[in-house]
Design a protein around this nucleic acid. Structure first.
Length: 321
DNA sequence: TAACTGTAGGGAAAAGCCCGGG
DNA sequence: CCCCGGGCTTTTCCCTACAGTT
């Protein structure tokens, strides 16, 4: 059995820059706290010999550090060491910016701009959207770590798991935790995070991850519709669209509302229906602000404003009123 | 009764993503 | 490992019909 010291704090750490940290609200910081404490406790429970500097590099937030520090002291430090280390902590913490800079770049969240996430290559314009995005990624990482916790119950397996990860042969995405049947699938999936799209349409410039997606897209330029309904002869560019259409013949309704049991032939119809339960009205009239659950309902309603305007104008000029 | 609204059926186009086989 | 074809899922937009309400 391999010694356990191959496990490092990096393996379970989640990093935030100070800018990112500043964008989080209280509950988000609290979630971060929970995640970090949970991860540390997993390591400690497995006999991880933590070094404070390890931990410090990942915990740049002052208030969080004091909490983690107390936790670690309670968990595994002798009273003697605790005092010594607290000294060391204060020193390092005072220099944390330098320490942070000196650290090799291996963190997953170090955006160059506060509103750009390198994790998935997304540009996010709104601050609240960005912090929400950060927290989503954090939750994803938490779920990954939770999976690890399960598998790490066996120390031998933990080491195996680490070796596999080191070799990069795991078919599990390190960003979202999704598992794949083969390495190629994983590689392709990773493109969805990196934004890499090697197949570009020479007509409109749209790019795609897979060649088959580009081919599918090309049909929109050629107007080709190779899939024909054998019942009514209607043609479609994609087989799935034909299948969708065929449900109008078969009456198949595979999408069922969990609330009332009503069934629908397509997913979007169910989504739309579900808004009648939630009361969600995402579409708003530009003129009067009235909200509607369906886009087309707003458009129809907006027409009544236009109609009124025309009527008013007519009345004005015709002297009626 | 007409106007308006809520809701649902369905068409169309397009994209994202995964799997299995060659 | 890559390419390809096939398939599933989802999204967005649209038009329309029908029933209920004001």
């Amino acid at each position: 059995m391999q010694p356990l010291e191959s496990v490092t704090f990096e393996d379970v750490a989640i990093d935030f820059t100070q800018e990112e940290w500043a964008l989080l609200n209280i509950s988000q910081k609290s979630l971060f706290r929970d995640v970090m404490l949970e991860n540390i406790s997993h390591l400690v429970s497995m006999g991880y010999q933590h070094s404070k500097s390890d931990v410090l590099l990942h915990l740049e937030q002052e208030d969080l550090w004091s909490e983690v520090s107390r936790f670690l002291q309670g968990q595994s430090l002798g009273r003697e060491n605790a005092l010594k280390e607290q000294e060391m902590v204060t020193k390092q913490h005072g220099n944390r910016k330098e320490t942070s800079k000196a650290k090799p770049v291996q963190t997953s969240h170090i955006p160059e701009k506060p509103t750009e996430c390198n994790d998935i290559g997304e540009d996010i314009n709104h601050i609240s959207t960005f912090s929400q995005h950060l927290i989503t990624n954090m939750k994803k990482k938490l779920s990954v770590n939770k999976q690890c916790k399960k598998s790490f119950s066996d120390k031998f397996y933990l080491n195996q798991h680490k070796q596999i990860n080191k070799r990069g042969k795991s078919c599990e995405c390190h960003l979202c935790g999704k598992a794949f049947s083969n390495y190629s699938s994983l590689r392709r999936h990773e493109m969805t995070h990196t934004g890499e799209k090697p197949y570009e349409c020479h007509i409109c410039g749209n790019a795609f991850i897979q060649s088959s997606d580009l081919r599918k897209h090309n049909l929109t330029h050629t107007g080709e519709k190779p899939y024909e309904c054998h019942l009514c002869g209607k043609a479609f560019s994609q087989s799935s669209n034909l299948r969708q259409h065929e449900r109008t013949h078969t009456g198949e309704q595979p999408y069922e509302c969990p609330q009332c049991g009503k069934a629908f032939s397509k997913c979007s119809a169910l989504r739309r229906h579900e808004r009648t339960h939630t009361g969600e009205k995402p579409y708003e009239c530009h003129q009067c602000g009235k909200a509607f659950s369906q886009c087309s309902a707003v458009r129809r309603h907006e027409g009544t404003h236009t109609g009124k305007r025309i009527l008013n104008a007519f009345s004005k000029y015709s002297g009626l009123r």
